[in-house]
Nucleic acid binder design. Sequence first.
RNA 1: UGGGGAUUGGUCUAGCGGUAGGACAGCGGACUCUGGAUCCGUAGGCCCAGGUUCGAAUCCUGGAUCCCCAGCCA
Length: 559
Amino acid sequence: MTTHGTAAPTDFIRAIINEDLKTGKYGGRVHTRFPPEPNGYLHIGHAKSICLNFGIAAQYGGLCNLRFDDTNPVKEEEEYVESIIEDVRWLGFDWQDRLFYGSDYFEQMYEYAVQLIKAGKAYVDDLSADEVRQYRGTLIDPGRESPHRSRSVEENLDLFERMRAGEFADGSRVLRAKIDMSSPNLNMRDPAMYRILHAEHHRTGDRWCIYPMYDWAHGLEDSIEGITHSICTLEFEDHRPLYDWFLEELGVYHPQQIEFARLNLTYTIMSKRRLLQLVERGHVTGWDDPRMPTVSGLRRRGYTPESIRSFCERIGVAKTDSTIDVALLEHCIREDLNKRAPRVMGVLRPLRVVIDNYPEGQTEEVDAVNNPEDPDMGMRKVPFSRVLYIEQDDFREDPPDKFFRLAPGREVRLRYAYLITCVDVVKDERTGEVVELHCTYDPETRGGTTPDGRKVKGTIHWVSAAHALEAEVRLYDRLFTVEDPGDVADFESVLNPNSLETVTGCVESSLAGAAPGNRYQFERLGYFCVDSKDSSSGRLVFNRTVTLRDTWAKIEKKL
RNA sequence: UGGGGAUUGGUCUAGCGGUAGGACAGCGGACUCUGGAUCCGUAGGCCCAGGUUCGAAUCCUGGAUCCCCAGCCA
């Protein structure tokens, strides 16, 4: 893979690598890995880690493995493996032939465990989970040694072998490292290395009924793969001494663990457990619901891999707990789509407009620019006729100050078409709702120009009624109403009831063959993409990725 | 009150003894056939207290605050 973006910043991790390179610590090698557990879909926080690990490998001409940390069969599923592979690839990264699974090393890990038992550094404990907890002590009080701690090597070997053979029930025994029950670091108080789990593993089936714990397995996986810099999140800082202890006692290759702060985003929940809950309780339609911060959700929402990578680069890497303003993510997708998305006209909430002085039955085509940011994207023809739809928001019967759009007696420009003046307003007799406008057009202003030099402040978008394509448009907003839903005990109570509004609008005819996943800018509204699941040629469905910056909304708010 | 980490404008982030910089957000303006984009301008910060030094965000001492750890989860 190639390096994305411009010169990567030298954060504290790269500073460490630079130093290691200088001292030749790993013989000039840089080898990282992204080690997800396949128990959920990847989210934007994982994207940060992916960009970091793969980005560093690319930058230093090193390698980055994709490795599934699949040591807990009761939580992991093949579906998650597949989605993770798809997501990492979609983000633009490549692990070549280095797709690994922790479960590939189960036999090796078992042998290492036997080695530790033989060295008198591990023992089989018969205490129940509850007893183990009681023996562990507390944050301030030391723990007590298990009565089984001093079993002979032979007995431990025999017991461990029988654990593997399936002679014991789940939870009845565990293999523990023999370290220090009075360590102030609780992770060092004889942590469990293996637990008995008679569960079907998505890869190893029923070959095993004992499974390694993360702390035991993870460092071994890194060691076996020859990882140089084992990058993980802050909460594992306390585990590093244990990681180091295992590798030291085994006398095997020893990578260096470095911890950084995980990503938090305002108005967003990032915990897999909670995301799962949103899915299971039906608050969203699935892991790939466009409101989800998952990679698949962002993809379906219309985010580009480039925008996500750019975001991950901008947020930086440090050890400070931080919460990034979701506005930065939005900035990144606008920035990317502004340059690349073709412009198109679509009306979300149509208001019928009849051009009284335009010949009935006549149609003409006006020229429209596909992307003012990129002349290479060319021009297109847009049909114009007597009856149009404009945005309801673009008309006010009683326009406030600074409202430049249409109002009774007002003249505005129809983008790329003509200047029109509103001459009559038709309302529903019962509700008083404006249902139709009558306007006149100035034939001299074709293409939106004013031969007499007259200035028109407002330009609005429109779609010819006779040519319009009906489209379902899903208007997404943030999922939560508060900045930090993660701090709210019952985060479901703080869900935004208006996170999705579905409208039936109409779009210009050039969108007829719009392919799923295609992204467009609906002029003056925002960026939209064709929904990859629900859209078809017979029924167009668009997702709003993000609105355009809306200066008028700000002005109006202050009025 | 055990251990491990962290603390720079609203939010992120640079700085490594020598004028505190950038991004996003905010505010003001210019320009505009998208109230978009672009451009220009502007406000706002070193957790606190001592000390070392000609000079401290940076070094030292003490304190404060926040985060993580008592799964047979990762």
